[in-house]
Structure formats: structure tokens, C-alpha cells
Computed example of a mutant assay.
Amino acid sequence: MGTTFDTLERTPVTPAAQPDPAKLEAFMGKMVGDMGAANGGALVILGERLGLYKALAEGGRATSRELADRTGLHERYVREWLSAQAAAGYVEYDAEERTFFMSPEQVMALADENSPVYMASAFHLTASVYMDEPKIAEAFRTGEGVGWHEHSTCLFCGVEQFFRTGYRAFLVQEWLPALDGVVERLEAGAKVADIGCGHGASTIIMAKAFPNSDVVGLDYHEASIERAREAAREAGGPANVRFEVASAKDSPGEDYDLVTVFDALHDMGDPVGAARRVREMLKPDGIFMIVEPFAGDSLAENMNPVGRLYYAASTMICTPGSLAQEVGLGLGAQAGPKRLGEVLAEAGFSRVRVATTTPFNLILEARP
């Protein structure tokens, strides 16, 4: 029988030692800051959805009335939103003129969708975590998984928007060139499979960058494949890209020059089996490119803001997703290069190396 909230609330907890007043004050300050950030995520979504950031960035400094007029929104709501954003440091406030404005850095992160550090729309992922918390709480009790398809639809959009920023900035410019001989093959005309493609951001980027190559995006989630096909049409309908519904272990086709998995191998219940299928799909000289969340090989190495973000996502999304599938290995989003290398070696890859990294990404190259 599970413990109820009321029982927890009424049961006294005696600290092992008396708290240090200064440390307690500092910790409470941290908690208040975290609560402000957690609540403020909804305001970022509002700012992105309602065009408030864009209007402030493009039109320059403004009072709440002026920004309300620019956006056609109610001034009283805009005033409170601006005040919260200024207190959070997401916009600037001139106390003498009583106007609000955005620094170049804030514009890049919150108003420019083509920026390599754009983050505003990724807060939809954060919203999905709160929506799905009851499902994850039950999974804690039962040990069962929560499949990707069982999450709020906010998750699918949020994940795409969070990772797409990095894909746009680095995939063609840095990650593919870090793989030996891959760019030359793609330029000449290669056969590429993008497994676990989701909404197709990575697939479309590769297809547009290398029009001589044939690129197929594969994902078991039918709704995501439908959205990927729509995204391809919005991107001009490249003739060299297509999308199919297929699980990783049932991915169709052979003789691929390049197979990619972007931020999805750790989500799979049987990543060894999926990687083994990739090996079967590749030409003898083919290449498997794995993009994973950046991580070190130990918990101690991941005690930082990026590790904090990814461990939270792993608790709420990645680990439950893996446990919902056959095998249920539960690698987690912070597996690290050593553990990932072990998975790939077990799948039959003899040569595995870290090709390059970013603060958010770990890019591995594996060859048969």
C-alpha cells in the first residue's frame, strides 16, 4: 500500500544534525530561485506563443502600453509579464524611463528562431514534464515504463525545438565533417537512414544540405512521421527525402553508407539490438553516427547544469521510455561514452570513437 501525501506531511523528520543557519539560508535561496525558474517557464512559452519577445526585439525598447499596442494584447497582462521577465533577467528594464528592452544575448536566446542558441520554444518540453508527472509517479510505484507515445504532445514539439537548434548550428558545419570521409560521400550521393527521426529535423537538414544523397527518416511513432512529412513540405519538399514508420530493430533496407541516430539510442529498450540491426544495414565500409546528450562516464563528472537538465529529462522521459520496451535496458540520458561504447561493441562494432562534442552533445562514430 502506497504512502499517502497526508501521511508524509504529518510524519516528523528529525535531522541527523542541527542545520547550519547560513547554509540553510543559502539553500532556501536556491530553492526560491528554482521555484521562480519553474514557474517562469510558462511565461517563456507565453512570450514565444504570443510574439512578445519578437515584438520587443524588433521594435526596440517600449513601455508595457507600447508593447501591448504592438502585439494587440491587453496592457495589464503585458505589464505583469514584462515585470516578471525583467525580474528573471530575461529582458532589461530602464527604471528612469520605465521602459523594457532586450540585450543582443537575450534576443539570440529568446527571439531569433534561427540563432544557434535559441531556446524559447524548447520550454514546451518543460511543460510536458509537469503534465506527465502523475504517470511517472505511478511508474515509480510499479516499475513499469511510460512509452514515448504515452506522453503529452507538448513533449514531441518541445524535443524537436530543443534539439533542432543544435542540429541547425552544428550538424552540417561540424558533426558530419568530424566523421572520416562522410561529407565527400554525401556530396557524391550516399544512401542515408536516420533512425528515430521524430519530427524529421535532422533528416530534412541532411537532405537539403546534400541533394545528391537519398535520405530516409524512420520512427515507430506514426504521429511523428506524419509531422515529419508535413515539415518536409514546409521546407520546400526536397525530392531526396522520405519518411517511413518503422521501429529501430525493424528498420528496412541494406547497403547504407550512413546510418544516424540522433538523441534516441539511450531511449531504446534494446539499444544493443537496435545497433546490431544498424550494422546489418550498413555497407562493409559504412558509418554509424550516434548523437547523444553530452555526459561524462561518472555521476561526479555530470554534476553541472547540463547534467542536471539531462538527468531530470532522463528521469521523466528517457528511462521510463526505455523501460516500456522489450529488454528495458534503461541506459538513461547520461550514459557517457564508455557505456555507449560497450553497447556498440556488443552489437558488433569494432571501431568506436568520440568524433566531436558540444556542451550539449556527444557525437560518436562507429564502424563495423
Rank of each mutant, 00 (worst) to 15 (best):
residue 360 F to S: 04
residue 221 H to R: 08
residue 217 G to P: 01
residue 97 E to D: 12
residue 69 D to N: 10
residue 199 H to W: 09
residue 290 I to F: 07
residue 231 A to C: 06
residue 280 E to D: 06
residue 9 E to M: 09
residue 82 L to T: 03
residue 39 N to W: 15
residue 197 C to M: 06
residue 107 V to C: 03
residue 78 V to M: 06
residue 141 R to A: 11
residue 65 R to N: 14
residue 193 A to I: 12
residue 131 M to K: 14
residue 95 A to Q: 11
residue 290 I to N: 02
residue 292 E to Q: 10
residue 254 E to S: 07
residue 164 R to G: 01
residue 260 T to D: 06
residue 302 N to F: 08
residue 315 T to L: 08
residue 356 T to L: 00
residue 237 G to K: 13
residue 160 E to I: 03
residue 361 N to L: 02
residue 172 V to C: 05
residue 86 A to M: 14
residue 71 T to D: 04
residue 159 V to T: 12
residue 48 E to N: 13
residue 104 P to N: 03
residue 251 S to N: 03
residue 311 Y to E: 13
residue 295 A to R: 01
residue 245 V to Q: 11
residue 196 G to W: 05
residue 2 G to R: 15
residue 336 G to C: 07
residue 20 D to T: 14
residue 177 P to T: 11
residue 348 G to T: 03
residue 192 V to A: 07
residue 235 A to K: 06
residue 75 E to K: 15
residue 204 I to Y: 05
residue 38 A to C: 01
residue 298 S to W: 04
residue 278 V to H: 00
residue 88 A to I: 03
residue 112 D to N: 10
residue 347 A to M: 05
residue 322 S to I: 08
residue 130 Y to P: 05
residue 40 G to L: 13
residue 255 D to G: 06
residue 180 D to L: 14
residue 75 E to S: 13
residue 137 A to M: 12
residue 113 E to F: 09
residue 366 A to C: 05
residue 244 E to F: 07
residue 51 G to R: 06
residue 205 I to Y: 04
residue 103 S to L: 04
residue 364 L to M: 06
residue 259 V to W: 07
residue 341 G to S: 13
residue 217 G to N: 01
residue 265 L to I: 15
residue 43 L to E: 14
residue 176 L to T: 01
residue 103 S to K: 03
residue 368 P to M: 10
residue 224 S to W: 03
residue 59 G to D: 00
residue 127 A to N: 05
residue 27 F to K: 08
residue 35 M to F: 09
residue 64 S to C: 09
residue 185 R to Q: 05
residue 180 D to Q: 12
residue 22 A to G: 03
residue 302 N to Y: 06
residue 269 G to V: 08
residue 344 L to I: 02
residue 164 R to S: 15
residue 254 E to G: 00
residue 299 L to W: 07
residue 91 V to T: 11
residue 87 A to M: 15
residue 70 R to Y: 13
residue 355 A to K: 00
residue 85 Q to D: 11
residue 9 E to W: 08
residue 14 T to K: 15
residue 25 E to P: 01
residue 190 A to C: 11
residue 226 E to C: 06
residue 210 F to E: 00
